[in-house]
Design a protein around this nucleic acid. Structure first.
Lengths: 152, 152
DNA sequence: CCTGAAAACGATTAGAA
DNA sequence: TTCTAATCGTTTTCAGG
């Protein structure tokens, strides 16, 4: 099996998630059906976990983004903050982190007022303290991952 | 013009970036051609800025991610860190932020060793000090934005 | 701005190497 | 795993409301 072809497919499809099989076929130099079976395999193995349209936050009503670090108030309690917060769909990402805080959230909201509300919701839902860092400007994001080394 | 249809299209296409026009048509209750022209318009207006496959970082060779806050060493110098760092393609996102640091990066690398190298590269390339927070676990990310209010 | 239908194109499947 | 070729579904274009 030739990983470099898979990597080429992955690179192409993460740059253009709607690329057709024939476009991918041109890009990697295999027939359409060969590309198709490789793509299918990458999907079923979960190397490709999904496809997304990238929306412009400004035009979509969530121009304000922020990082929220969270720290449990009671270190003795069961700490399942990620689940407790999952219903808040302003939260785009939730990571457990090393350092002073336990988790880092990335959130998108329509306004400062909405951010205030969200922070309050986070605190109440997960019984945590928070430290919010407002994003002033986004220079770039969603830059495509370039697959490195083997995909197996 | 009916924004609620556009919002429905956006919601659907950000959940499945490869949804066909007929699937979207079913989802929003308009003909395929109507959906197509709306989608085209959303693309040309930049409401949809692109499409991406979401790859599994583990399987793609970048299992380690981190936040890097950066602060210019010399506040007098022209501060164009985002441009100076753009060539480092381990950097997935670059935001200007409020707070102690100037910028927040989100990066993905193959190993701790590669992170060390990246941090060094960042410091040298932009003449900045850094503060790195390693991600221990990602509970979720890439959660689809749900469009709020008007898209114009 | 919408629909509906014809033509072009892409995706899928089957069979063979 | 790959290819080609036939079939099927999707996208595109256009006439008309």
């Amino acid at each position: 099996m030739d990983d470099s072809v898979d990597r080429a497919i992955l690179t192409a499809i993460s740059r253009d998630g709607r690329a057709t099989l024939s476009q991918l076929s041109d890009a990697v130099g295999l027939s359409v059906s060969a590309v198709q079976s490789r793509l299918r395999r990458l999907e079923t193995r979960g190397v490709i976990s999904g496809y997304q349209a990238i929306l412009d936050p400004e035009q979509v009503g969530t121009p304000l983004s922020a990082f929220i670090e969270i720290t449990p108030l009671d270190p003795a309690q069961p700490d399942n903050a990620p689940e407790l917060l999952e219903h808040l769909d302003a939260i785009e990402a939730c990571h457990s982190i090393a350092g002073d805080a336990s988790y880092m959230l990335f959130v998108r909201v329509p306004s400062p007022r909405a951010l205030e509300e969200l922070v309050r919701d986070v605190r109440l839902a997960a019984n945590v303290s928070t430290r919010t860092t407002v994003v002033l400007q986004t220079y770039y994001e969603h830059r495509p991952i370039i697959p490195v080394g083997s995909t197996e």
